[in-house]
Design a protein around this nucleic acid. Structure first.
Ligand SMILES: [Zn+2]
Ligand SMILES: [Zn+2]
Ligand SMILES: [Zn+2]
Ligand SMILES: [Zn+2]
Lengths: 132, 132
DNA sequence: TCTTGACCCTGTAGCGACTACAGGGTGCAG
DNA sequence: CTGCACCCTGTAGTCGCTACAGGGTCAAGA
């Protein structure tokens, strides 16, 4: 199996080229070997690692947490308590955001429901933003 | 009623001093008159405007949208269709975010539910991040 | 052989909405 | 008069990208 260019890797993982280079700068991906022409040459190990990063990002983990997860994933024998703690923190963060957004949604829906589409002077939305 | 210092305004609205200055730079708040010592001197009009901005931010509106809302709020006679459109856009954005976060929450909860707290090699969380 | 065009490289700047200084000036109470 | 809390401007950092600018590389087609 031949080495992959950064564009190949981007197509295979769905992560944009610029983002792959950014992850490398941030220390999430190891610096790959280069071709004669100074192109990055990736192997399947790199692809697996990038896929791990992408799945973690899709769950909302920050790059610091992902670095920690990658480190933990390398130590097969250790207990997974730290992994679970990171996942629980992330779940808590997601739940906090959902709670905030749910409150926003309720207020926006209520505003929109009360607006009778007349003039700005009587508009319920503007009225509430002004504080009644 | 005497003029308010920026610190007074911050305490009364719950908006940090640095953020008030930032809103002024961004054109959301008018430049207030200054005292002899070059301190900003606010009146109740400024406080109302800042409160409007804060309530809008609390609903997740971006600063561009808030600028538009402030402009619209000044034209009392005009129909409120544009206001409603901004609110509907914001509601749609909030709903999109809730959907994304809800999917993340489900996956995180499921991962955590399947983890039997043994070694990293067998950890369901790490396993799924690796793509099974 | 030459040229075109797609790809790759580095380095830097921008996004949004703040937040945190650094390095100074002001104002009031003890 | 001396602290101390507050205020000023200007700049840089945060997070996770994203978008250039200004070049180099490489394979296919004429
Ligand atoms: Zn109601
Ligand atoms: Zn209305
Ligand atoms: Zn399950
Ligand atoms: Zn586990």
């Amino acid at each position: 199996m031949p080495a992959l260019s950064i564009g190949d890797l981007a197509r295979r993982t769905g992560v944009p080229v610029e983002t792959i280079r950014y992850y490398e700068r941030m220390g999430l991906l190891p610096k790959p070997p280069r071709t004669e022409g100074n192109y990055r040459a990736y192997e399947t190990g790199h692809e697996r690692r990038l896929a791990f990063v992408k799945r973690s990002r899709d769950l909302g983990f920050g790059l610091d947490a992902i670095r920690a997860l990658l480190d933990l994933a390398d130590g097969a024998d250790r207990p997974c308590g730290e992994v679970d703690a990171l996942a629980r923190d992330q779940l808590a963060e997601v739940e906090r955001k959902i709670a905030d957004l749910t409150a926003m949604r309720a207020e926006l829906q209520d505003m929109l429901g009360h607006c009778r589409a007349d003039t700005v002077a009587d508009c319920e939305i503007i009225g509430r933003l002004r504080g009644k």
